[in-house]
């Protein structure tokens, strides 16, 4: 129970159009007040439990994403917020875009929508909590994702 009562999130913006970011921030405003569930938007990955990723992954930011993922101590879950983070969204098949977050790191929960409503994001966080608890119980550790040097598209 201890994990579910104080989920600290780290918000990672990968190439998002800022639509999803605004909605994530809206969750913390007085109207939705995510802090009543103990949710804190923490600055450093070393103290975070839930990684909230918005936007699609491209060749420029993939290593940043992996690096932040590796720095979150276990147990941890990844929440992909928005169509872009889930599948690539409207940026799908762009020359510089790899795709959704699940192409590079394991994703535990998806919040679809462009952009998703704050209620949906809060629902996603609550869904992530039970996954977090299960990971703690099953002692499931996230694997370290290796960083590559300069990632480039295969046809470049």
């Amino acid at each position: 129970m201890s994990l579910a009562k104080s989920p600290w999130i780290i918000h990672v913006n990968c190439n998002s159009c800022n639509g999803c970011d605004i909605e994530v921030v809206a969750c913390l405003t007085p109207l939705y007040d995510a802090e009543r569930f103990g949710v804190l938007n923490i600055g450093t990955p070393k103290q975070a439990d839930i990684m909230v990723v918005t936007g699609s992954i491209n060749y420029k930011n993939v290593n940043v994403l992996k690096n932040i993922y590796n720095q979150i101590p276990d147990p941890k879950v990844v929440l992909a917020v928005g169509a872009c983070a889930s599948t690539g969204g409207i940026f799908h098949n762009c020359y510089n875009v790899i795709g959704g977050v699940d192409q590079v790191i394991p994703v535990d929960a998806y919040v679809p929508g462009c952009c998703p409503r704050p209620e949906a994001i809060l629902d996603g966080v609550v869904a992530a909590l039970s996954i977090l608890e299960n990971k703690k119980k099953g002692n499931i550790k996230g694997k370290e994702v290796p960083l590559k040097g300069n990632e480039v598209p295969s046809n470049a």
């Binding site: 201890s2 994990l3 009562k5 104080s6 569930f37 103290q47 720095q71 147990p75 703690k136």
Partner: peptide, 25 residues
């Protein structure tokens, strides 16, 4: 003061309990 409901009074205790159950990096 910010017009929110806010976390329960015991939230710092939950935080500490959670942090103790996390990996030490």
């Amino acid at each position: 003061l910010q017009g929110r409901v806010g976390p329960p009074i015991l939230q710092p205790y939950y935080d500490v309990k959670k942090l103790l159950s996390k990996d030490n990096m």
